[in-house]
């Protein structure tokens, strides 16, 4: 552990800005967004949540994959070489989400587009002390503390931050900077006091244990609840846009009027949208809103765990906040749990 006095925070960030693009939460129309900062005094470390998660820096909503000439068949990959970037003040839920994205994009064939951005980015996270919003359920999902993989993690000790380093890339942001002190006994005491003091501020929002989530969802495949909330779902795909672990995409070709030069582009897609699982010829493998909604919940709480060893949900609550039909994971999962308990052995 090291100590960063709060009055040196801005000086540190200004120093980082010399050779990095620095991205941080910024207020915008009463909400917070992640954006590049042009001065250290724009930095906000105390924010509730961001509209979009930081995934947009690794998987932009729209990106070119390669350019082509349809006549000559020349093709050229577009791998964006970004400048070294530091993303500041990530909440631990978002850090867990990036860990899942890393695993998915690095499994099998590595996605070079993702990788090029990711390996130039260092993440500075911050310990959450208070719940950010009523829709969040990070404590239930185990994402209220820092994951195994992190770069630099800050904990607010009042007039100073405790600074933990988890990687070489993180160490490179700290070493030789001159802003960081060695912790004193009092700092360690304060750290332990702060960490112990934060947990009671958060509630377990799910009625079942996180390890039971795959079983609960597995037992709820035929639950009537999917039809009930499917009735309300607008199939708008908002939940997937704001989700820090959703990464599904569509691919489209764009070509000039001479039908010669063009590019292949990927854009964010959503498994909630109507055409997502339709194959050529028209057969739709998930032909109702209920089916699509169920697929999303299953994916978050069961399928991704089975496929990648990590849950697909980090409990950030953004989907609940943004859903125009007020469909929330907390209510959905707790209702499934209630019905399972009411009729054990039967479908909820």
């Amino acid at each position: 552990m090291r100590i960063l006095p709060k009055h040196l925070l801005q000086a540190w960030v200004e120093r980082l800005r010399v050779d990095h693009r620095v991205v941080a939460p910024r207020e915008s129309h009463g909400q917070y967004i992640f954006d590049e900062i042009t001065s250290a005094d724009e930095l906000v470390l105390d924010y509730h949540s961001s509209v979009l998660p930081p995934k947009k820096y690794f998987l932009p909503p729209r990106e070119d994959l390669f350019t082509f000439n349809a006549k000559t068949m020349e093709m050229s990959p577009v791998i964006e070489e970004i400048q070294p970037t530091v993303i500041m003040a990530l909440h631990t839920c978002d850090l867990h989400a990036i860990q899942l994205l890393d695993r998915i994009q690095g499994t099998g064939h590595v996605d070079q587009h993702y990788q090029a951005r990711r390996r130039k980015t260092t993440l500075v996270s911050i310990e959450c002390m208070e719940p950010c919003m009523a829709q969040a359920f990070c404590k239930s999902l185990g994402t209220l503390s820092v994951p195994e993989q992190f770069d630099v993690h800050l904990t607010d000790l009042g007039d100073r931050y405790a600074v933990d380093v988890g990687s070489d890339a993180g160490e490179a942001l700290i070493r030789g900077m001159g802003f960081f002190w060695k912790p004193s006994d009092a700092d360690y005491d304060r750290f332990n006091e702060v960490m112990a003091g934060k947990w009671p501020n958060f509630d377990y929002r799910l009625d079942c244990d996180v390890t039971d989530l795959p079983n609960l969802l597995g037992a709820s495949h035929d639950s009537a609840l999917w039809d009930e909330i499917g009735e309300r779902c607008l199939s708008c795909g908002q939940c997937t846009k704001v989700c820090p672990t959703c990464y599904c995409f569509d691919v489209v070709d764009e070509i000039d009027l001479k039908l010669e030069k063009g590019k292949r582009v990927r854009v964010w897609d959503s498994c909630l949208l109507e055409k997502f699982a339709v194959v050529a010829g028209g057969h739709d493998f998930r032909n109702s809103r209920a089916n699509r909604l169920r697929h999303r919940f299953m994916r978050k709480g069961k399928y991704q765990l089975e496929a990648y060893g990590l849950l697909g949900c980090v409990g950030c609550g953004r989907c609940a906040l943004s859903c125009p039909a007020h469909i929330t994971p907390i209510a959905t999962l707790n209702t499934l749990n209630e019905r399972r308990q009411a009729s054990p052995g039967e479908s909820a």
Partner: peptide, 20 residues
Amino acid sequence: ERQMKCGVGKCGHCQMHHIY
């Protein structure tokens, strides 16, 4: 048969349960 858009397990379209 599924909508196997990317072929490399990334785009999500062909997922059935945990299987790409």
